[in-house]
Nucleic acid binder design. Structure first.
Lengths: 238, 238
DNA sequence: GTCTATATACGGATAGAC
DNA sequence: GTCTATCCGTATATAGAC
């Protein structure tokens, strides 16, 4: 699948994101008309990610947010109860959307190599389409309350377990070599995360998400089919 | 090289770290006796990483820090001029030490495969020995001023360029396949970072730094020698 | 050299006018 | 539905006693 095909089928615009937030918190939000509510949520949502991804959520003041969104401090409080609840609303909505998209994106493939490729591509395309949210989610996870933090961690581990499972199935079916599926999944996950954590780096080097996806899929396939290369001598001349 | 051998030759204790900080800021620090100064710097340094790696540097108050270090707020200000300068002192000292250790750790090997392995091992062992600092440095880079932020970014890119250069040399000498050395270096870097960013995960799974190093070296060698695996069909049934 | 007490400022949240 | 003005708590930083 190409990135274009992916974005056309998945609903991942800013508006979709805010519709998700509105649906989950309809009664807490003071604005009566959905149209008004979504419009302002979009302004607040975008401003939060913008300022927060630059200087951190804690460092962002309500005055900063008011300036960046164009909505007064008082009015913003019609859309969330506290700064902390704003953080949670954003994390929650993103997790919901990401989970939904991932589940249906990998429902096609059957054979382990294609399944692995599909999972890698889906994750990269998703994190490309929602890059600011993925970055935000990763960097601000520490500032969540206990329950929410646990959920965020769960979401992360689920991706990793999913990849590990595909590799394990491939080993059982004899199409993959006898590799360490857990460590393999861990480093593949690390490569996936690098895409949204170091977005600026790849943008500067003009690496497209498709090229990066091809590369990571190639790495994963090479590893699963051929196993590790010779690790070489452990001793190094000093 | 094993991790034990590495730690024995490199000076990476908390005390060494604080000696570095003291040397760089001797005249700003009010305490006259070096012994007192280093002792208190150690308490402040450890407390800062402890609290900060849990809840973030911004969220850590001077009262938190006072409680965790056992030094009163007033006394702490005899060791730094502001909260921000404390952040910079820690980042600066760590960068200095890490740079020094990396330079001499990779000075032995000659052939590209061994050179690559040495660079990977050195980075992993170093980040293991200074894990709290590496984590701190990564997560708090956003809160640095312009100049310091630039320096932090430079340090990161240097590691990556170094790895890319080794791969390029291997290609020229014909011991490595014709792979993309820049993307290869980027994902190897991502694997190195995962070690200190997700330390708890590997600890829980009882993966030692040596085993992880063997694994990453194996991945890197497999990639450099055999190139990418078949990337498979791009189309996935929907 | 270290502490307590405090000056000063700033942040989150709200009340009430429009 | 939105804004301004403001309350109140808490944060950083310092002064001055011991």
């Amino acid at each position: 699948m190409t990135y274009r095909q992916f974005t056309r089928q998945a609903k991942l615009t800013r508006r979709d994101f805010c519709l998700e937030m509105l649906a989950a918190h309809r009664e807490d939000i003071k604005a009566k008309k959905d149209e008004t509510a979504v419009k302002n949520l979009e302004l607040i949502f975008q401003a939060t990610l913008e300022v927060s991804n630059q200087k951190g959520f804690q460092a962002m003041t309500m005055r900063d947010l008011s300036r960046a969104s164009g909505i007064s401090v008082g009015a913003m409080y019609d859309y969330f109860n506290s700064k902390e609840s704003l953080l949670e609303m954003i994390q929650e909505a993103g997790r919901r959307i990401a989970g939904r998209v991932m589940r249906q994106a990998v429902s096609g493939a059957e054979a382990p190599p294609e399944k692995l490729a599909a999972a890698i591509r889906a994750h990269l395309y998703l994190s490309e389409a929602m890059q600011p949210w993925f970055f935000f989610s990763y960097m601000e996870a520490r500032h969540l309350g206990k329950v929410e933090k646990q959920r965020a961690k769960e979401g992360e581990l689920a991706t990793e377990r999913h990849i590990a499972e595909i590799i394990r199935a491939g080993k059982r079916q004899g199409v993959f070599a006898d590799v360490d599926h857990r460590l393999g999944a861990a480093v593949i996950k690390a490569m996936l995360q690098d895409w949204y954590l170091k977005r600026w780096k790849y943008a500067k080097r003009r690496v497209s998400v498709e090229r990066y996806a091809d590369f990571v899929v190639g790495m994963a396939h090479g590893f699963c089919r051929n196993g590790l290369g010779d690790a070489g001598p452990r001793e190094v001349r000093q």
